[in-house]
């Protein structure tokens, strides 16, 4: 962990989540330490069932840890009340889910403005922000479409726009390309890449190596614990030719 703890946006120490008890006890997350610096993109990879989704839920305050602590922007969130947690989610965290989780009866625009409305913004401001974001994800022309009329990639872009609605400190994405074909995956990749460039802090949990490869740092997770960490920055450019069979 190269980031000094005090500058990190999101920090976890000894994070643990157990399910069941006695013989059937399962450690879904088992003693995870993590620091995510501002503007950093971190990908967590691992086989399904390794606890990575649970970890993401713990980091975003959707679920409570059995032990350890989570610090978001210098404030502990593992021991605060449900209500405070909800307030924290609406301002500091944006979620992107594998299954998009858009409201079927709301248009793309209404879906995006929903989180701003929940956060108590004025309807006018929420609407303006939603329009801006849809434009940013390249869906300005589809603002009035219902999710059922959008392709998978477009739906996920709407979901990303929704996650960005309240200018969160960190965006947490759970298998954002899990339900997408390769063309749609590319769509979302572009979007995440531009988020990264704009300095958005991102934590992505995935087993899609493609999206994991966009990260600055890649963490491998096995049986609830981190087993390997790779810094992907500082590239190997120039050797691409070898990969294509151009060099011997």
């Amino acid at each position: 962990m190269s980031n000094a703890a005090d500058t990190s946006v999101l920090r976890a120490r000894g994070l643990r989540k157990d399910y069941g008890r006695g013989e059937g006890l399962v450690r879904a997350v088992d003693g995870v330490d993590l620091d995510v610096g501002p503007g950093e993109t971190v990908a967590v990879m691992g086989p399904s069932g390794c606890g990575k989704s649970t970890l993401l839920h713990l980091l975003g305050g959707l679920d409570r840890p059995s032990g350890g602590e989570v610090v978001l922007n210098g404030r502990r969130i593992d021991d605060i009340g449900e209500k405070a947690l909800a307030r924290m989610r609406r301002t500091a965290v944006g979620f992107v889910f594998q299954a998009f989780h858009l409201m079927e009866e709301l248009t793309a625009l209404e879906n995006v403005e929903l989180s701003a409305l929940l956060a108590g913004r004025s309807p006018r401001a929420a609407r303006r922000r939603a329009e801006e974001l849809l434009d940013q994800v390249g869906l300005a022309g589809r603002a009035r479409f219902l999710p059922s009329a959008l392709s998978g990639g477009q739906r996920q872009r709407v979901a990303v726009a929704r996650a960005l609605s309240n200018e969160p400190l960190v965006v947490l994405a759970d298998e954002p390309t899990g339900n997408l074909d390769s063309a749609a995956t590319l769509d979302v990749l572009h979007l995440f890449e531009s988020l990264h460039e704009s300095g958005q802090t991102l934590v992505i949990v995935t087993h899609d190596t493609r999206i994991a490869a966009t990260a600055d740092r890649l963490i491998s997770m096995r049986d609830g614990a981190f087993v390997d960490e790779t810094r992907l920055t500082g590239g190997t450019t120039g050797r691409l030719g070898a990969l294509a069979g151009l060099e011997d």
């Binding site: 190596t209 493609r210 490869a213 790779t230 992907l232 590239g235």
Partner: peptide, 9 residues
Amino acid sequence: LRRLRDAQR
């Protein structure tokens, strides 16, 4: 992964 990242970029 590094190669993948480069190729992808």
